[in-house]
Write a protein that binds this DNA or RNA. Structure first.
Length: 772
DNA sequence: CAGTGAGCGAGCTTCCGCTTGACTT
């Protein structure tokens, strides 16, 4: 029997708090929300003031039973979930489900996990704030209504199993709109002029300078270089300007995801998994937070660390205020639990992430860096243009000693080099001057992390959902994360050297993308459909607007189901209106006519994805169909590219009296013979040109490797027990299940009894989850 | 587990936010 039961949300937190409270207190956790809306009939009684119908979540049944048992015996139950909308709702659900006696229930909150904070919370309990709970119910009901009414519209109008929601649909919209901006982007070019000067008299000095204008035409660039042949160059001004740089605030979920992505290339889910490990090991504070606040204790221990490591001069205590929209600040910023540990044991990635967090936290409490920016201006005789050389010198490193924040921008070359000592009036001579054609860059594609940053900026989504949202839009096929090769383009370069101008045609590769998010055809079609019929849900301000109303509910100034009612009626009307319109949305595009038949060539989303067809469905003759390749898109494919697709499948001829055909399938190019498939070799074979001889070679190769595949066969009660040679080594197949062979067994010597033993001892496999 | 693209119908999919496992062919 326990005197006091304290319930928090996270088990790791429970463990820590129990240490602070000591005897008489049992601290346990609810593992987040314990119940949710039923999936039947929306889980909402719409006609009856939107009364929610809650069910204990299946994976929480055990926890709830356990909590019920303890709560019954406890003299006092302390509901200590987070101090935000969701936390308050968790406290309320607990009190309802556990049927807590209000006289024996107290609600407590704390923002940091320190002994003082927790003891203080125990001394100042309150009751559940029902206004805040209602704000959460409004949030939950709204999301359910939007998600569960919108998604089925997509199943009917676009494709089954699709989804839409307040958060994911806006995320996709951002990607689609950026992609179209890039498609429509027309690069402009101009000539950038760089000069490599030598000091005119004795020692040659390395001084690079850039002209303060760029020339639009090659003629202008060339004639400027001509002018430079005879011109004198004079240093006219040297200006020095002190500047400073300030450290970035401590990490939140979103900024940690961004930095881990920029510095180490981690995906957002990878970062979160690593952070979860660090949190569970007690190395860092909670990793799902929107707060930049540090506890007094943390600031103090950071100060001690800084003073002892770098000296008083490097210390500057700073308190940060969160400014992101919709922040709820139930936690601290993400920081090391112990500031005196600059590194921890663990695997390489855990170490990297921990050290990043340690450095960022420490730097946030350090002095500004003091810099001096120098600009040297060089006049050109008889010209209004000037050359500028810029340099930056660190006078005091401050926080830069431990941490420099990265940016998303590509590295700019030059500009920040160290400058030589030089005087005004100094004459300079050039070694070479070049004018290089430079193209403007298209807006950047999003990475997972930069999309999270944008969503946070718009106040859409929460720290606990950033990573899952990014996964959802990929799982639905709206978005794909991949690398894409760049394209080549030519550019001009003029170089003036030894009084001679040379012109060069050069090529560069541009637009190379690595781990970027690309919208798919489905993503674009769904986005266009939603934008056409439900512009209010897709509005970038939709979340911010409803958040304001949730705040009013939390303040007690608005009744939650009235707010929902006002939203629901016009929304539901739009749903009905959208369903009344007949036909599907397929993103259909007519890209021209087939020169052979004169029939129209159409690209659209078919039952199995993006496809091209020659001829109308109304036509007497059946249209010809072909699936688009993975790197082709409805919006950009040309007639020529589409016609190319119809050259497959290709008839290669006969082998062993059966036809051999080459084509491209879901797993890439293949040849088919006698209903069997043989993959073409990547980078060697091309389905458009492969010949019969080569196809036969591939078939025979496969036959040989298949022969080696079978090691042994035994007769089991449920059919054959096979020992096969697979991609990962030998394994056993029996009754449609695969079994791994334990180490230390000689595969060739396995007997039937050995196999049965292995099958019996291998752990029961859980049923495969549906979907991917 | 690759080829298809007509049509029917049954039964399914789906949201956002709190948490952590238990998986890793």
């Amino acid at each position: 029997m326990v005197e006091n039961l304290v319930i928090v949300e996270s088990p790791a937190k429970a463990k820590t708090i129990e240490k602070f409270l000591g005897k008489g207190y049992l601290v346990t956790s609810s593992f987040g929300h314990i119940r949710d809306l039923s999936k039947k009939d929306f889980g909402i009684d719409i006609a009856n003031n939107y009364t929610p119908n809650y069910e204990i979540s299946p994976d929480k049944k055990k926890v709830v039973t356990e909590l019920k048992k303890i709560a019954k015996e406890a003299q006092m139950v302390w509901l200590a979930s987070d101090e935000d909308r969701e936390g308050e709702a968790i406290a309320w659900h607990l009190s309802e489900v556990l049927q807590l006696d209000l006289k024996k229930t107290k609600r407590i909150v704390f923002h940091e996990i320190t002994k003082e904070a927790i003891l203080h919370a125990i001394e100042t309990p309150r009751q559940i704030d029902y206004n805040l709970v209602n704000a959460q119910q409004a949030r939950r009901v709204l999301d359910r209504l939007v998600g569960f009414e919108l998604s089925p519209v997509l199943w009917k109008k676009v494709k089954p199993s699709l989804s839409a929601g307040r958060v994911q649909s806006v995320a996709v919209r951002l990607l689609v709109e950026r992609e179209r901006e890039i498609m429509n982007f027309v690069p402009q070019s101009a000539f950038r002029v760089l000069s490599q000067f030598n000091k005119a008299d004795t020692n040659p000095v390395d001084l690079k300078a850039e002209l303060n204008t760029r020339f639009v035409t090659a003629n202008e660039a060339e004639s400027f270089l001509n002018h430079c042949k005879q011109a004198a160059f004079t240093v006219s001004d040297i200006s020095k300007k002190p500047t400073k740089r300030t450290p970035a605030p401590p990490f939140t979920t979103s900024t940690l995801q961004q930095e881990a992505s920029r510095k180490f290339g981690f995906s957002v889910s990878q970062t979160m998994t690593l952070a979860q490990h660090l949190y569970e090991a007690g190395k860092i504070t909670y990793m799902r937070t929107d707060s930049v606040n540090l506890s007094d204790a943390a600031i103090e221990s950071a100060a001690t660390e800084i003073t002892s490591e770098f000296g008083e001069k490097y210390l500057k205590t700073r308190r940060y205020k969160t400014k992101s929209k919709g922040a709820q600040e139930a936690h601290e910023a993400i920081r090391p639990t112990y500031m005196n540990k600059s590194t921890i044991p663990g695997n390489a990635n855990e170490k990297k992430l921990y050290e990043l967090i340690w450095k960022r936290t420490l730097a946030s409490q350090m002095s500004d860096a003091e810099l001096e920016k120098t600009t040297i201006t060089i006049d050109i005789e008889n010209s209004k243009h000037k050359f500028l050389a810029q340099g930056e010198m660190i006078k005091f490193d401050g926080f830069l000693k431990v941490y420099i924040e990265s940016t998303d921008d590509e590295e700019e070359d030059g500009g920040k080099s160290l400058l030589p000592i030089i005087n005004a009036g100094q004459k300079l001579g050039y070694q070479s001057i070049s004018a290089t054609q430079k193209f403007t860059l298209n807006p950047p594609r999003y990475t997972e992390a930069s999309l999270v940053r944008k969503l946070e900026e718009l106040g859409i989504g929460r720290p606990s959902t950033y990573a899952p949202t990014i996964s959802t839009i990929q799982n639905r096929g709206y978005v794909i994360k991949e690398d894409r090769a760049g394209k080549e383009r030519g550019y001009l370069q003029f170089t003036l050297k030894d009084n001679k101008i040379t012109k060069a045609d050069k090529t560069e590769v541009f637009g190379t993308e690595k781990s970027k998010l690309f919208p798919t055809d489905i993503g674009m079609v769904v986005n266009d459909y939603l934008l056409e019929h439900f512009p209010n849900i897709l509005d970038f301000n939709f979340t911010a607007d409803v958040e304001k109303q949730f705040d009013d509910i939390a303040e007690g100034d608005m009744v939650w189901h009235k707010m929902i009612d006002e939203f629901y009626h016009p929304f539901h009307n739009r749903i009905e209106g959208a369903l009344e319109i007949v036909g599907r949305k397929s993103g259909e595009r007519n890209i021209g006519n087939d020169p052979k038949t004169g029939k129209p060539v159409i690209v659209k989303i078919g039952r199995y994805g993006p496809m091209a067809q020659i001829g109308d469905n109304e036509d007497d003759e059946k249209p010809q169909y072909a699936a688009l390749r993975r790197d082709q898109h409805i919006e950009t494919i040309t007639l020529e590219e589409a016609l190319e697709l119809f050259k497959l499948p290709r008839d290669l001829g006969l082998f062993e009296t059966k036809k051999v055909v080459a084509a491209i399938g879901r797993f890439g190019p293949y040849v088919r013979h006698d209903n069997k498939f043989y993959s073409l070799k990547k980078g060697i074979d091309d389905p458009y040109t492969v010949e019969l001889d080569r196809a036969i070679e591939l078939i025979q190769e496969k036959r040989v490797s298949d022969e080696n595949k079978n090691i042994a066969v035994f007769q089991g009660t449920d059919g054959d027990i096979q020992i096969l040679n697979g991609r990962f080594g030998p394994y056993i197949v029996y009754n449609k299940q695969n079994y791994r062979i334990p180490k230390g067994k000689e595969v060739k010597e396995l007997t039937l009894d050995d196999c049965l033993e292995i099958i019996k001892n291998s752990p029961e496999k859980p049923p495969r989850k549906k979907g991917k």
